[in-house]
């Protein structure tokens, strides 16, 4: 279940009437391959009240679900580095932040186009769920990552640090447009910051419908605050 699908699947029939979903993955020709321009003819003709963006979101898993062949630690404000193992290569945290900005530039370019298309609307960037820290769960439902299961998983603190860096990237993108960033619901997270298995889909990275419900509740209360 994709990050958006987790949310969409939680919608009640009544709620569903209020949502229009533009799927960047499955809409042919939504993005011009040559120019990377979004074809807005695929967007609803009626003007929405708010735009929710949930674009990509697995970059932290790409970077850190499995241990890199050249293991690394990243900078940490109080600990200096996480993990503490000094045998690992060291990457200052700003460099990790820069990696996300670089990696997500095409995603953010599309988002920028949507902002330009709806210049006066409120936008909310919906965070991807935190990493699934349960190795048994991932091994049970590896999906396409089965090919990598021979590799060790990255240390938990590193996976959390990378997820937090991803959240900062989306937060910065939101702030560039005066938009709101909606973090993952606290109720769906373990004390360590991982996705609670009760909210995990049967795959290595996504939330389930229960997770989607929590996100919808967050969105509702945020819209009430804004209204």
């Amino acid at each position: 279940m994709s990050h958006v699908n987790a949310t969409m699947s939680a919608l009640t029939v009544a709620e569903r009437e209020h949502f229009t979903y533009v799927d960047f993955q499955r809409t042919p020709d939504l993005i011009d391959a040559a120019t990377a321009k979004v074809d807005f003819s695929h967007f609803p003709t009626s003007r929405p009240d708010v735009v929710l963006l949930s674009m990509a979101g697995n970059a932290h898993n790409v970077l850190g679900m499995f241990e890199h062949p050249q293991p690394y630690a990243v900078g940490h404000r109080t600990k200096g580095r996480v993990p503490a193992d000094t045998e690992r290569a060291f990457i200052p945290l700003d460099l990790i932040d820069a990696w996300f900005e670089h990696h997500l530039r095409s995603v953010f370019d599309k988002a920028n186009q949507i902002h330009a298309f709806y210049p006066d609307l409120p936008f909310i960037y919906v965070s991807a769920p935190p990493p699934n820290g349960d190795e048994v769960h991932i091994r049970t439902y590896p999906n396409a990552f089965a090919a990598k299961l021979h590799m060790p998983f990255s240390p938990p603190e590193l996976r959390i640090a990378l997820y937090e860096a991803q959240c900062r990237a989306y937060q910065r993108q939101a702030e560039r447009h005066g938009a709101r960033f909606l973090p993952a619901p606290v109720a769906a997270c373990t004390p360590e910051g991982f996705l609670d298995l009760a909210f995990a889909n049967n795959d290595p990275t996504h939330g389930n419908a229960a997770y989607g419900r929590l996100v919808l509740d967050q969105i509702s209360s945020l819209l009430e605050q804004v209204a």
Binding site: G75, H76, R77, T78, K79, G80, R81, F90, P92, L93, D94
Partner: peptide, 8 residues
């Protein structure tokens, strides 16, 4: 981000 990170 901090003196601790710089030390590392």
């Amino acid at each position: 981000i901090s003196a601790a990170e710089l030390d590392e």
